[in-house]
Amino acid sequence: MSEGSGSFRPERRGEKVSLGHYLAVVGGKQLPFWWRSKFLAVPDDFSLLPTEQLWQTHDELTKSLHTKRSGNEPTQQAGKSSLLDSKVELTRRIYRSCTLCPLMCRTDRLNGETGRCGLKADARVFREGLLVSEEPFIVPTYELFLTGCNMRCKFCQAWEGVVRTDLGFKLTGSKLASTVERKSKRGALNIHFVGGEPTVNLLAVLVSLKSLKVPLPIVWNTNLFVTDEAMKLLDGVVDLFVADFKFGNDECAWEIGGVESYVATVQSNLLKASRIASLVIRHLVMPGHIECCLVPVVSWVAQTLPKVTFHLMLNYVPDWRAWSDKALSQRLSESERQMAKAIVKSTGLKRVLISE
């Protein structure tokens, strides 16, 4: 999620290159992926299929979302079994031995067990509202902050919702449908799931989407520390990934975020995200972590995904456990801010946002 708010200044024009699908949905030229998934038929007995066969059916239908042009009409009557239903079923099966993220807790969340994320089957919203302090092409955005996370970043500003997963209200289809309808009338451009980490709440989100009647695009504000299975389930649901690339090396990821094998996982998922939806990559510059984190992050993005919109965030504020870390307990110095801007400028990235 966004660790801070501030003003946004486009450094270059041309977001349409990396935001094409999302902007087309907002402009009414395409339907959201999740909406189209509600009308792609699966066999009525899909829930009886072996998992491997169900994945095959799911993958073939998901691929068709990208190979067929999006029309203005659904391909079947509502109420029939759909691709979205198959995603619900596959996620429910994963919850019996959870492998949505690389921690591979394998807890039975359907029967009340919890892993690192602290979640069972339900999702809870600990904060929500129509916000205007995000990227300019996202706002106004209807943002839902979900409890629970698979990372434990020392500086997390949403830490209370991460460690207290019982906060807020239960996410349900009826609640989401009525609220989205109201927020849409007030100008919301999208439905924006944040955390914590929304992916570890995937089952409740998918079930809730089945009840929605307003085809707004889905924005997925994520750490992308998730598995291949999770990415396949998000394909055909998410219209815009707003993804944090937090750490430039695995040592900092472990020391600050509490996870291993971070860099390779996130880089792989960023590539996948860029192929299946629109993508924005965020990097929150941490004090004392210019060379070890910012430099490798921005270098990789410039070399690998040069057309993607990159959001350089210079609005770091220490919170939660950051006070125990000498560097993280400080704000960015002016020299660090100027250095970060110069580094990004030197890479030649063409679509850059800066928040200060």
Rank of each mutant, 00 (worst) to 15 (best):
W34S: 05
V295G: 06
A158Y: 08
A177N: 15
S329I: 10
L328P: 02
H21I: 01
D244F: 00
K185G: 06
P217R: 06
F33N: 09
S18T: 13
A41T: 09
N111Y: 13
K29Y: 13
L271E: 15
R321L: 07
V194N: 09
P74Q: 10
I343T: 14
G118L: 01
L328T: 15
Q53T: 00
G79E: 02
P140Q: 11
L54N: 11
D235S: 15
F241W: 06
H311S: 15
G248L: 02
D250T: 04
R275W: 10
N249S: 02
D235V: 00
L110Q: 12
V301E: 10
L131M: 15
K80N: 06
G248Y: 05
E336Q: 15
I354P: 01
F145A: 10
V237E: 02
L48N: 13
R9D: 14
V17Q: 12
C101T: 03
T107Y: 02
L167V: 02
M1E: 13
L171V: 04
S299C: 03
L294Q: 07
L294K: 05
K87D: 04
G28I: 01
N150M: 04
Y262K: 00
R96W: 00
S346I: 04
S268W: 04
P102L: 09
L233P: 00
T141I: 02
V344L: 03
N72F: 15
N223Y: 01
F169K: 15
T107I: 14
L305E: 08
W55A: 05
S261F: 12
L90D: 12
N72M: 15
T67M: 08
R351V: 10
R93P: 14
F137Q: 13
F310N: 06
R9I: 15
R36G: 10
G79R: 05
P296L: 01
V238P: 00
K307L: 01
L31G: 06
T51S: 03
E229Y: 13
F247W: 13
G187T: 08
S70R: 07
S81F: 07
V266W: 11
L119M: 10
G196K: 05
V242I: 13
E229A: 09
Y262F: 10
R331S: 11
S324F: 03
W35C: 01
V280R: 07
D239A: 03
P74M: 14
F8R: 09
V132G: 07
T62C: 07
G236S: 09
P32N: 12
M1G: 09
S329F: 05
V344Q: 04
D166K: 09
E15G: 04
F225Y: 13
W320Q: 05
A322S: 13
P296Y: 01
E73D: 11
V26R: 12
F247Q: 01
E356K: 05
L49Q: 08
E160N: 12
D228V: 10
Y142E: 03
Q330I: 04
V194E: 00
K350P: 04
P136E: 10
S208N: 01
T75L: 07
V132Q: 09
E336T: 02
S82V: 08
G27I: 06
W35P: 07
T165R: 03
